[in-house]
Design a protein around this nucleic acid. Structure first.
Lengths: 346, 346
DNA sequence: CTGTTAGCGCGTTCAC
DNA sequence: GTGAACGCGCTAACAG
């Protein structure tokens, strides 16, 4: 009586969803057997498996991954933390990561820091709260708290975009300094002498700044003037590129080459040059960085430093998956490199 | 003795993370008090609150959202399911959704169906397993299983991109038929007579097909030939647009206007026309759809149907949040509309 | 191959 | 304003 009574004041917390226990009852087995039938089918007799599958179907059971996560101390979720979702570069990397991760049964939890390292730190705390299987972060610079938390975490962490020495765990990226140097060197080799760097959002985007620094050191080492810089506060857009070209054409003396910190800026500048009838590279040369597909469709084709973004994403995901599979991936630090694609704009 | 013994074979399931109980011990209060201090600070005395906060800080406690989710029957996660992450349109919408959601303390769980409705159905099941607070889906067409699951779910669901009658719950989008008609009507009004529709991935992208059908009905109603269609199997890219232009220039009779099913195709065609010296709109007019920022930077500026994508994302997020806040949002079905941006390409 | 037992870490319920 | 007990739904551990 007593027991029945205490039981009768039903909890209404659950969502009324079909649970594993319901399936077990329907199939006439213990809950754990249902769990096994679903998660490791081989460890259960075919007969039972069939009965369970039938019950699952009949009841429309959908596993509660939250509960599973709590019990197993981990969900099949991989948070991916990037500075911005409005930059094409990140999108392509994310896309590649997502493809690879989903094919392995993981879900991608996306979050953007809006270029703010403090926000990144908060986000890391938040997403760790979901007991994810691993984490993917952007860049090598983080708040100390992020680094210490993640280092002691015991699960795979991959830092992407930037390649370097001091990593939390694993790393796939490219060296910003080399990128900046490569384009500067190319432009100097072509005979340009007044080479301006065009960047945007540089105060927040430290990787963009790294490229600029690479550019400047290369120029300085060659004895060139490295002080030609056009900086814009807002994020890169065709409009900013167009604006840069206009300003350049009004300068005197005027730069003879523009090293744009990404292809959006470069394309914007080039399209504006087309519109104004400015000869490229006759009056001014334009070089970009990224290897966006638009580069090759412009007239003239844009010279650009192509970074294999999709490849970077895929490799990041694979490093993670390898570790999750219990392996110890070879070369956990990878410089993905880049290629100078010579168009006709320089 | 006995008890101690049985207790001594410790479980090692937990990750050794700091738990709420640890904080409670350190602060000398009960776990529930810590919970309250963190979640509803007003319900706890300032003194205790301070002690708890101190302990949290000292131990570096990070809440386990999984456990919280299980107990509270819900996580602050919003899955967003889209067909593809490589299409700019979706990115911009996702970006806007993410901004709004994160500002309200929710995380976005991103998944892509790769244009496959069966995969969508599976994904819905999976993400529902995370007991999310709500769901955002793309389009109005889904497998029956998705519709029935979600209708009985009891939490907010928003379908985006497409606007229509039969929705699961709430809806923010635009009517594909109207879009197709609008551009066709514009082109006819401009005096073009042989108007070709250029589309890609139409067998999977039914919304693209809707635009084509709108286009065709408009032409037919005006007594024009609606059979000019260039279809490509691969997804939209500058390259496909360029290819379309080449093919068109080789046709005879030749279309005098191209209605491209998005701006990427249109831009690709226009850039190729520039390269080949084909006069636009003299020899062939080109109209796009989307209102991507590149449209206005091309020469000539591209005529396009601009859809307020960011606005669509923001509104979708707000509908969801309104419902989560307990309100009953006004106009839970919203036609976000579009604008004809007349460039010089038509 | 299957079942029993005991939590995972937290929030709800009800008592003080 | 604070605490004790209980259970969310599932799985790890251990037995049989």
């Amino acid at each position: 009586m007593d027991k029945t009574d205490s039981r009768s004041r039903k909890r209404h917390r659950g969502q009324g969803r079909v649970t594993l226990a319901d399936v077990a009852k329907a199939a006439g087995v213990a809950p754990i057997t249902v769990s096994r039938a679903l998660n490791s089918p081989d460890r259960v007799s075919p007969k039972v498996r069939a009965r369970v599958e039938e019950a699952v179907e009949a009841l429309g059971y959908v596993p509660n991954l939250i509960a599973g996560g709590l019990a197993a101390a981990g969900t099949k979720v991989i948070p991916v933390i990037v500075p911005s979702l409005s930059i094409l570069t990140f999108i392509e990397v994310i896309h590649a990561i997502g493809q690879r991760l989903e094919s392995a049964g993981y879900q991608m939890l996306l979050a953007s820091t809006d270029w703010d390292l403090d926000r990144e730190a908060d986000l890391v705390d938040t997403v760790l709260g979901y007991s994810p299987s691993g984490v993917i972060l952007t860049g090598l610079r983080h708040r100390p708290r992020v680094v210490s938390r993640l280092k002691g975490w015991g699960r795979p962490v991959v830092e992407i975009m930037e390649y370097g020495e001091s990593v939390i765990d694993m790393n796939v990226g490219v060296d910003g300094d080399s990128l900046g140097r490569a384009m500067a060197t190319h432009l100097m080799a072509r005979g340009y002498r007044r080479i301006a760097f065009v960047g945007s959002n540089l105060d927040r985007d430290y990787r963009g700044r790294q490229r600029m620094q690479g550019h400047q050191s290369a120029l300085e080492q060659a004895g060139f003037d490295a002080s030609w810089v056009l900086e814009y506060a807002e994020p890169a857009s065709y409009a900013v590129g167009a604006q840069a070209l206009k300003e350049v054409m009004a300068m005197s003396p005027r730069p003879d080459a523009l090293h744009c910190s990404n292809d959006i800026l470069a394309a914007g500048a080039l399209l504006e040059a087309n519109r104004q009838g400015v000869a490229v590279p006759g009056e001014v040369a334009i070089g970009g960085y990224l290897g966006l597909s638009i580069a090759e469709h412009l007239t003239p084709r844009l010279t650009t430093l192509a970074v294999p973004r999709a490849e970077m994403g895929t490799q990041a995901a694979e490093l993670l998956l390898a570790r999750l599979a219990g392996g110890d991936p070879e070369r956990p630090r990878r410089d993905i490199g880049f290629t100078l694609v010579e168009g006709d704009s320089t």
